[in-house]
């Protein structure tokens, strides 16, 4: 067991190293950080004044070092929790500060979205599986199919129109200075936008697995002993049906991270999504790098956790 966990974690670390090296060299080779720090002065290499400025900036941001050296330096800082300085001539706060301020909002949104998705999908799947191939199940299949075909930004626009503008049940915008609870309330609609299609995906899988499980002998046995239908579903059928659900929960986190970036910009939540978009427009690559690393790390780690959890639930995986 322990060696399996160690093996999965090593792979995850290697993947993250590869991802960071790729992203870091891509950003450094294709972008020109000097232009972002100094503006047009960076191109003016004839004027001795600007040469002095360029050299000062190069020394300050370590741009005069070789690429591998800068990567190792950045990685060392990253491990100690320092995400580097923002590239700007006006003395913006270091990247870690921005991330510390904005990442929790995205995290709340994502956790809320995944919880909602799970809370919606389990009863939905139980209901559909218990009435398999009957009208209720058919309606639920069509509904989930339609939901999956609806892109998150379109769903965001529709929900915003229906629930926020027409019905007025939810606030339209997010206010960063509001108390925690009202910000949770403001996050509900964006979270629901992300959760609904995810719930449809989970429901489809769980329903299929539940239907397969319900045909097993031990279910027939339990029913024959007089256990009620719902008790069989909840106590006997649910747990062995969770395997593909858990795997897809991990894989789907990647799609949800992408979705949350888009939904954030629609509902104006100043989280990581808006941060990376602003940073891209300014070519501020330490910020872009930080957001990419956070998103990728979360994704990779969730999948490692899912793998480990899976091996607990199904000991056969442990090779």
């Amino acid at each position: 067991m322990l060696s399996y966990v160690a093996q999965r974690l090593t792979l995850a670390v290697c993947l993250l190293l590869a991802v960071s090296a790729l992203t870091f060299s891509g950003m450094n080779l294709l972008g020109d950080p000097l232009v972002n720090i100094l503006g047009p002065i960076a191109a003016d290499t004839k004027n001795p004044n600007s040469i002095a400025l360029i050299e000062a900036a190069e020394a300050e941001y370590h741009l005069d070092k070789s690429l591998p050296e800068r990567y190792v330096r950045w990685l060392g800082d990253l491990v100690r929790g320092d995400l580097g300085v923002q590239f700007s001539s006006t003395g913006e706060p270091p990247v870690s500060n921005i991330i510390k301020e904005r990442a929790p909002r995205t995290a709340v949104l994502l956790v809320m979205a995944q919880s909602l998705a799970v809370l919606i999908s389990i009863p939905w799947a139980l209901l559909a599986a218990s009435r398999a191939r009957r009208p209720a199940d058919r309606i639920s299949t069509v509904t989930s199919f339609l939901l999956i075909a609806l892109p998150n930004f379109a769903l965001a626009v529709i929900l915003k129109y229906l629930l926020a503008i027409k019905l007025g049940w939810f606030p339209i915008t997010y206010t960063a200075n509001d108390p925690f609870l009202s910000r949770i309330y403001q996050t509900f609609l964006p979270a629901l936008t992300i959760a609904l299609p995810a719930a449809a995906v989970y429901q489809r899988l769980l329903r299929t697995d539940l239907i397969t499980t319900l045909q097993e002998d031990f279910i027939l046995m339990a029913r024959a002993k007089g256990v009620s239908k719902w008790k069989v579903l909840l106590r006997h059928a649910l747990r062995p049906s969770f395997f593909s659900f858990i795997t897809v929960f991990g894989i789907n986190t990647g799609a949800l991270i992408g979705g949350s970036l888009v939904v954030e910009t629609i509902f104006r939540i100043p989280g990581l999504g808006t941060t990376i978009v602003e940073a891209i427009i300014r070519d501020d690559f330490p910020v872009v790098l930080a957001v990419v690393m956070i998103a990728t790390s979360v994704f990779v780690l969730v999948n490692v956790l899912v793998d480990i959890l899976y091996s607990f639930l199904d000991p056969r995986v442990k090779r």
């Binding site: 991802v19 992203t23 970036l261 872009v288 990728t296 994704f299």
Partner: peptide, 17 residues
């Protein structure tokens, strides 16, 4: 490696560069 990027993040990265 390609699969360890969340999809849209990779797209954002490339279009940004």
């Amino acid at each position: 490696i390609l699969l360890s990027f969340p999809g849209l993040i990779l797209a954002i990265l490339i279009t940004a560069l």
